[in-house]
Design a protein around this nucleic acid. Structure first.
Length: 414
DNA sequence: TGCTCACCTTT
DNA sequence: AAGGTGAGC
């Protein structure tokens, strides 16, 4: 039986992309609750499905390593799988056959040529998925220059990066997050893929499946099926949202939201059942290129109050629509057009599972400049943004917690 | 606008 | 209680 790849064993052909750990920390980025599809299958080795392929990723100081598994031929088992995968089968087979064609082609052509071609495409997929064109070092430096609290956290939690996920996978995973916690969501998403997604390959005892297609999710039998799998009231949201998308917009609709402005995409998503303000912002930020979307949950509200002395609405019991909008606008003013990325760093730093990261850095922290000095540095710093290749000069008065001058189109007040 | 409640399941 | 949504007042 095929096994999960391990870099140090030297048994497999790994490929690499130059990437410093300060630009990407796999452990934080893949386990902070934006994707639920990656598991640590060996120390520092993360295995998951991305772009219809099964990958194992690991990293050394300046290198991101990746290994891609061959898609297994499950032709013979299809009869058995038919019952289990019903809805997705039709489309799934087409995709699988396409994969098989690829594999066959690869065998026939000179190895070196296809290997280079594939590795170019695969490296591109990886760069796209991790959005490596966004310079995280610059973002951390610039935001840290105007926000001392962020700077303190960012020195410890470097390399926390937003993924650019497939919109369908992102939407339907995030719908599962309401009233829920990461470990349970992980199990649910795994069961969802096993039940409705196309099988890709099996490694050790684990079988990997692609994320279900919209048409698989839209089947009327899906709600009952997912209730059995422990999705609770979310089962109906998933099936109904898939059906609504296909019935009223078409299969390309979610992807097309990548091309429209943030507020438009967010409002479009909110018409779907199970999609409120928070889920819509998550999908915008994590799959639709909307770096200014800041998902606000009770946790982020605590951060606003505790670390940013955000007082408005503190008398309130829960996050009202009004408060949701105000906190988001507050953070966009504070952090600029990549506010969603900044929020994810602070969010990550607050997760219980990552508290050990802070402890490990204490020794290092003690040796560094003291707090007074850090604040002084903070005040002197200048602001210059260049994350996306486009230079945005945002000259702000250097001051701690000074708000960045950034215009994010304000929501219309109806 | 803002509040409450039900909705599933697990810690 | 929890990393939320939707419906009703």
């Amino acid at each position: 039986m095929a096994k999960h790849a391990v870099l140090s064993s030297g048994a497999k052909m790994w490929r690499s992309v130059a990437c410093a750990k300060s630009e990407l920390r796999l452990d934080l980025t893949l386990a902070c609750g934006q994707s639920f599809r990656w598991k640590e299958t060996a120390v520092g080795h993360w295995t998951g499905v991305m772009g219809g392929r099964v990958w194992t990723l690991t990293q050394t100081d300046d290198t991101l390593w990746y290994y891609i598994y061959k898609i297994q031929d499950t032709q013979k088992e299809e009869g058995d799988k038919k019952k289990r995968t019903d809805g997705c089968l039709q489309k799934g087979n087409k995709v699988k056959n396409a994969f098989k064609a690829d594999l066959k082609k690869e065998e026939e052509e000179p190895l070196a040529v296809t290997s280079v071609q594939n590795s170019e495409e695969e490296e591109k997929m990886l760069r796209d998925y991790f959005q490596l064109n966004v310079n995280l070092g610059d973002l951390y430096r610039d935001v840290g220059a105007t926000d001392c609290h962020f700077k303190r956290i960012a020195d410890i939690f470097s390399g926390v990066r937003m993924l650019r996920q497939d919109p369908t996978e992102c939407l339907f995973s995030i719908i599962c997050t309401s009233n829920n916690h990461i470990s349970r969501i992980q199990g649910m998403v795994e069961r969802l893929c096993q039940a409705l997604g196309m099988p890709l390959c099996q490694l050790d005892q684990t079988s990997y499946h692609d994320f279900p297609t919209l048409s698989a999710l839209a089947e009327s039998s899906v709600e009952a099926r997912l209730r059995d799998l422990g999705f609770g009231y979310r089962a109906r949201f998933l099936q109904q949202s898939a059906k609504q998308i296909l019935d009223t917009h078409g299969p390309q609709w979610l992807d097309s939201l990548r091309e429209v402005p943030y507020l438009e995409a967010r409002d479009a998503l909110r018409t779907l059942p199970g999609v409120g303000a928070k889920v819509a912002d998550c999908v915008c930020l994590m799959s639709l290129n909307k770096s200014e979307a800041v998902p606000i949950d009770t946790h982020v509200w605590q951060i606003a109050k505790r670390d940013y002395k955000y007082a408005a609405g503190s008398g309130q019991k829960s996050i009202t629509d009004r408060l949701y909008r105000d906190i988001g606008d507050f953070f966009r003013k504070q952090w600029g057009p990549y506010a969603g990325w900044v929020q994810s760093v602070l969010f990550c730093a607050d997760l219980k599972k990552f508290q050990s990261v802070k402890e490990r850095s204490h020794v290092k922290q003690a040796k560094e400049e003291d707090v007074e000095e850090r604040i002084a540095t903070c005040k002197k710093a200048k602001m210059k943004r260049e994350y996306n290749g486009t230079v945005k000069n945002l000259k702000t008065e250097p001051a701690c917690h000074k708000k960045a001058k950034v215009s994010v189109k304000r929501e219309k007040v109806v």
